[in-house]
Design a protein around this nucleic acid. Sequence first.
DNA 1: TACCTGGTTTACAACGATGTAACGAACTGG
DNA 2: CCAGTTCGTTACATCGTTGTAAACCAGGTA
Lengths: 346, 346
Amino acid sequence: MVRPRLKDVAELAGVSIKTVSNVVNDYPHVSDETRARVEAAIAELSYRPNLSARSLRAGRSGVVALAVPDLDNPYFAELATNVIEAADRRGWTVLIDQTQGDRAKERVVISGIRDHLIDGLLFSPLALTGKDLAGRDERTPMVLLGERIGTGRSPYDHVGIDNVAAARAATLHLAERGGRRIAAIGVQRTAAAATGRLRLKGYQQALAEAGVPADPSLVAPVARWGRADGAEAMSRLLDAGAPDAVFCFNDTLALGALRTLLKRGYAVPGEVMVMGFDDIQDGRFATPTLSTVAPDKALIAQSAVDLLAERLSGGTGRAHEVCAPHRLAFRESTDVPGEGHSRTLN
Amino acid sequence: MVRPRLKDVAELAGVSIKTVSNVVNDYPHVSDETRARVEAAIAELSYRPNLSARSLRAGRSGVVALAVPDLDNPYFAELATNVIEAADRRGWTVLIDQTQGDRAKERVVISGIRDHLIDGLLFSPLALTGKDLAGRDERTPMVLLGERIGTGRSPYDHVGIDNVAAARAATLHLAERGGRRIAAIGVQRTAAAATGRLRLKGYQQALAEAGVPADPSLVAPVARWGRADGAEAMSRLLDAGAPDAVFCFNDTLALGALRTLLKRGYAVPGEVMVMGFDDIQDGRFATPTLSTVAPDKALIAQSAVDLLAERLSGGTGRAHEVCAPHRLAFRESTDVPGEGHSRTLN
DNA sequence: TACCTGGTTTACAACGATGTAACGAACTGG
DNA sequence: CCAGTTCGTTACATCGTTGTAAACCAGGTA
């Protein structure tokens, strides 16, 4: 009933503990006969190695942590899926932390409390400042996902996308399709919120470039990036005078905005075009389907895992910066009939 | 640079290893002066206990595994969120396994390969059979989520909902609202797929009860329960002669079906009503908003964690069966104007 | 002074696995 | 026939932590 140890197997097979260990670890110099006897004993007791003991001995656990704000958010859920798959390919197990984008919780994550349980950390922070990061003791390798934090050169590997360029391209698309009053939903008042700032920057660049007037009243702030926030922000925008296009800083905001528009009787894309960011599954099945910026999530996850693997195998060079590619997915929500051909990509 | 151990702290503080351990573990009989010295040393070296060593010693790791088919599916993502929160309240960390609903992977999960890393397992299987379960050696406590597996009395605690009753209520609602050709999307041909069978049963019961003819051609099978499957199944149904209502066995199927309906020009709920199951966030922001069966996910997660905790603290009684409550959320997708008052709950 | 009491601290042995070094036995070659 | 090699196996120490039991040191009591 109690879990068998190497010792139990050894006694049953009539060999030493180490020989059993050797069989378990495929050590080559074990005679066929001994190996067979040991394997039989292992099967009989259904022995499983104790991973805690192994980690202790090896100094490795085979577990990496993924810290994200919230799995409720489909973007992070999809990212987590990809991370788990990539980790699986390396034989790693993924342990998930939810920070709720809360600075205190994010600090706990980097504090190293779990450092001895995990071999590495994949971290997608929202509220952390450069100072928080600087205070970290760097014993457990960490790869940052999403936005770069702080200004100076960070000692941490980082995987992200070019938010400014992506937002710029998305906004330009709206302008090309005839948007003259292009709103933006997603700026946040908090000090951290780097991603929002970058996307705002891209949005502003695009307006300037396209010669579309930048109206500050068309920039709608939100508390968080959920559907409800998008819906509410859209409501405010409409009350203040309807825009003819909206660039939302992520897809859940966009789906919320879309909901408000349709509920209040606006035709999308006829009267108002909507563009999102992230390419979550929901957007492909919304009506109208949601145009969006599609970052390569699989590549982001794979790169992050690869970077971590490199650090784990002793890589000590300076921090790597990976900028994952993105593409624009033009779907129905920006597909104005008669305005040029539809460049729907999928 | 290397991680400090108790020994290093002890040397710096000029005390024994055990005293440091006592300080770390809040053992009461340590003099204030010693405690202060030790704490200073801990801070100076920024010592963190090695959790692998602790687990080895304690026989506990503080880690539980949650095995679900796929975090991409919002239902499981939301469930995972709740589980992580509930586990957090007990000081546990959650490690996530994705099985893809694949029987081979599900068998690996129960095989106990990780038994020594985790204290317990929360498992939401899709493809597993009673036989697979019976072969498990029961050393690590496991709580099953979702459908009951096999026919006989299972030795495992289980948390689920009354699928038959829920599906029946959902279908009755469609009938009350005037549905006469009520379709169902979600039966699967695979042997496992117990959940689908139960929901089908509830659907059929409701039809009989409401005196609505049961037309087998209105029951649309699908391969999986994703949005694309729902969209495709709806397409087939429409081709064969449009129903006036559809009960989808989960919300992603429903969102897919909704997409097809709107794309092909059907008014929802005017011409076809749509009902889902799960109450995922997306449904609340779809247009029209999606009526659905809302299981109490927080309670499911909490119960599962509680049951596991009980087993971990030595509880050995017979298996518990928890049937979590559900309610119906009536939203726009079944809200036929003029057909009685609208019982929208949220 | 000798003894007890109770708080404080310590040495030691586990927890289960694996790397190291060393052992005996069976070969090889000179 | 013996030194040298290879193969299979083993004893031992170790990873970092904590429970146990015992040692130590006051202060109080007899």
